[in-house]
Design a protein around this nucleic acid. Sequence first.
DNA 1: CGGCACGTGTGACGGAAATCACACGAATGT
DNA 2: ACATTCGTGTGATTTCCGTCACACGTGCCG
Lengths: 259, 259
Amino acid sequence: MMVAGAIAPSKKWHIIRMQRSMKTPYGLQVIESCLTCPLKKDELFCDLSQHAMEGLDAISSSATYPKGALLFVEGQDSRGIFVICNGRVKLSASSADGKSVILRIAESGEVVGLPGSISGKPYEVTAEALEPIQANFIPREPFLQFLREHGEAAVRVAEILSDIYHATYQEVRYLGLSGSATEKLARFLLDLTLAEGTDKNTLRATLTLTHEEIAEMIGLSRETVSRLFANFKRKKLIEIHGSALVITDKAGLEKVFEV
Amino acid sequence: MMVAGAIAPSKKWHIIRMQRSMKTPYGLQVIESCLTCPLKKDELFCDLSQHAMEGLDAISSSATYPKGALLFVEGQDSRGIFVICNGRVKLSASSADGKSVILRIAESGEVVGLPGSISGKPYEVTAEALEPIQANFIPREPFLQFLREHGEAAVRVAEILSDIYHATYQEVRYLGLSGSATEKLARFLLDLTLAEGTDKNTLRATLTLTHEEIAEMIGLSRETVSRLFANFKRKKLIEIHGSALVITDKAGLEKVFEV
DNA sequence: CGGCACGTGTGACGGAAATCACACGAATGT
DNA sequence: ACATTCGTGTGATTTCCGTCACACGTGCCG
C-alpha cells in the first residue's frame, strides 16, 4: 500500500501505518447519542447527579471507528477526550527512529486523551483502535467548563487520572525494574491474571495481543518474546489455546524471578 | 549502622536505608501553619477563592524532615498528600531484589502522594527527602472532603495529576524508547535544559544528582553513566563545573541519537 | 590525625538479548 | 487458485552494557 515512498521499509512499519491512517482521520459517521451507548455511564462518572449526567450527554457525541483508525496522534493538539464504549484502543508512543512503546491498552469504559485535555498540552501518545470501536467524544473546552461547574465530576476525573497514572507506573516497573527478559514476560503474564482467580495455581486469561505488541509493552524484541513463550510452554508453565492463556503452574512462573 | 543484619550487603543499600529511616518515621516537629510557609500557595492551588484557601489551611499542617527521611514508603496505605515547600524529594520504586527506579524528583511547590491518596490505593512509590525539607501534610479524608466541596480545587488537582502523569510518561520514554545508553543520557541532559534557553547551541543547567541517581532515572548502571560523562567531556559536548552542567555543543549532543 | 563512607573513574570480561536471516502456516483479498 | 500480508518459530552472530574489580579524592566524625 505504501502511500509515502519517503519512508524506509522494514521496521518503520508503524510510522507508515500512522501516515496511512492520517489520510482518513476522525470525524467518521456519528451514530447515536451517548444515551443509547451500551456502556453504562455510571461505571465511569458514577455518583453523578441526574443534572450532571444530562450535561455530559449534551456535549458528547458518539461515533464508530474502524480497526486501525487513529483517534489522535502523538504531538497533536488536544481536542478532547474519548470515552470508549466498545472495543480496545492501543496507546503508544514512538521515537523518531521507529521504535515504539505501548503505554496501555484501554478497554470499554475507559477514557483516553484525558491528561492532554486537562493540561492543555498536546496528546503525548497515539491512540489506535485495535478493533472496530465505538466511542464518545467530548470536546476539550465544553468538557473543562463542565468540570468547573460540576465538582463531583472533577473529583471523578481525578480518580480516573490516578488510574491512568497507575497504568503508566506499571509500565515503568516493567521497563526499569526487571533483570532478565524472562522475568519481564513472567511478570506480564501474571499481571494479566491479577484481576481474577487469586490463589489457585492455575489461572486463565484472554490474551488478544500479538507477540509484537507484548514486546512493545514490556520492552523486548518480538523474537525474544516468541522464544520465551516457547520456553514457558516447554517447561509446562503455560498453555495457549487460541487467544486463551492458561497459566498451568503459577508457582513455577513466579519462581522464575525469585533469583 | 546496619540496623538489620538480615539484609545482605552491597547493592541492597537502599533497602537498608529504607529500614533505618522507618525506625524514625514521620510526625516530626510541627513548625508552623502553612500560612507562613514560604511557598506562595497560588502557585499550586491558584485561582482558589479566599474561602477555599482558608479551608485548605485548616486541614494542612507543616513539618520539617531531615535529609534521608521517608515521607512514605511504597506499599504503605495512603495517609494523605505532601505539598513540598522547600527542598527536593525523590520518588522511587524498587523491586524485591534491590533494583530501583527513580520516577521523578519533586521540587518546591510540587505535590507528592497525590495519586495514591485520590485513588485510595497504597502509595506506589517511596518518597525520600534529598535534602532537609519542609512540607505541608494534608490528610487524605479531609482532603477528599475538601475537594468534594470545592470543585475549583478538584479541577486543579486534575491538572496536577496530569503533570505527574507526564513526568512518569517521560520516564517510560527514557526506559523504553532509546536504543543506546548514550542516547538515553544525551536525551536526559537535553531535557534538563528544556525549560530554559531554547535555540542557542550552548545551554546551562544545574545538576544536583549523583551518577547513581541519574543511572536510576534512565535505567543504566552507575558505571555506564560515569563512562558516558567522560565520553561527552572528551568529545567537548559538555562541561561540568561543580553542580553546574554546561552543554557546550547542543547540536553535537543531539546528533548522538540522530542515526 | 586516622578511619570511613561516598561519589567517582576505568579496565577486563562475559553473557543476555538485539539483530539478521530465514521458513512456515493461516488468513485475506483479487 | 494465487499472491500477499501477518503472525509466528528458530538458528547464527554480534554487540552493548552490566558486573566485578579495583583506585582515587573528598568530606566528615570520633
